[in-house]
Design a protein around this nucleic acid. Structure first.
Lengths: 146, 146
DNA sequence: TCTATATAATTGATATATCAATTATATTTG
DNA sequence: CAAATATAATTGATATATCAATTATATAGA
């Protein structure tokens, strides 16, 4: 079997791109905000825009599973960025609230994220972004439908 | 600050693509081979082609750090896919050898990986792959040089 | 209504991710 | 050569990833 080494494939390139982006983004966040990871930041952003989200829904949005999300929110509650309170209408789920400390993070975070996105996409045209989206979409579809 | 939600960005799409690919690939591997993760499989492939690789070098190839690689190889040694022996020329590093059990895996794995790659890239032209590579390369460069 | 089924969240076990500190060995330089 | 520096690997601590099992609550259907 004549198999290309993993390092020569497009999957390797995709992985390395997203890993470099995450490293870059985390570095820029850590310079200004203490004790927040990218993913914790994303959770705050989503909750800010959609306060009614359940843990399960947040998990899907940031590509985690429920177990990871439970633990992630545990630590965010410990660090006082979030507060859990029962949802009286459906007692299986929680209401997750952003604390004042969480809100402070949200004052700084968006501009950092904006900077991260813009600078990592510098020199890339709208058209290229479209192509990227279309091609990646095909790959994803192949993986989910096969 | 008018920030697009993370779920609307290209980074979200890149992440979701690579995650779906990994899920798809892992499923196909697990159907035929017991107890091997994608990344462990990649380690075997790299070692098979370049037996002289150190842990540090393997780590770079599969985007792990040294600490993770130490532990990953620990478990692969425990599961008898690999064997560590001292390198007499430089006693800081190990020689990592593939055991017979590891070699058995290598008899089955390449065809599965081949299938995974081909089916996830079905319908995508050489030209599109090039575009993908170029655009992702730009993003990566932006992240590492800024 | 009562039971079966579905759903949200948690927990346990094990592996991996990440950072900082440490150990052992090599290499460089004064 | 001896001391300083560099390198490969390990370890500890904590967070996250993943799977399977469990708990608590809701909902659908007989």
């Amino acid at each position: 079997m004549n198999l290309a080494l993993p390092s020569e494939t497009i999957f390797h390139i995709i992985e390395s791109t997203i890993k470099e982006y995450r490293k870059f983004a985390q570095k820029n966040i850590s310079e200004k905000i203490n004790d927040i990871t990218i993913d914790q930041g994303l959770v705050l952003l989503f909750l800010n825009n959609h306060p009614e989200l359940t843990q399960k829904e947040i998990a899907e949005l940031v590509f985690k599973d429920n177990a990871s999300m439970t633990r992630m929110i545990n630590t965010m509650v410990q660090k006082k960025h979030l507060k859990r309170s029962m949802n009286p209408i459906d007692r299986r789920r929680y209401k997750i609230e952003i604390t004042n400390k969480g809100k402070e993070v949200l004052e700084t975070l968006p501009s950092i994220i904006n900077y991260n996105r813009n600078s990592s996409l510098k020199g890339i045209t709208k058209n290229e972004l479209n192509q990227l989206e279309v091609i990646l979409g095909k790959i994803r579809t192949n993986c989910t439908k096969t």
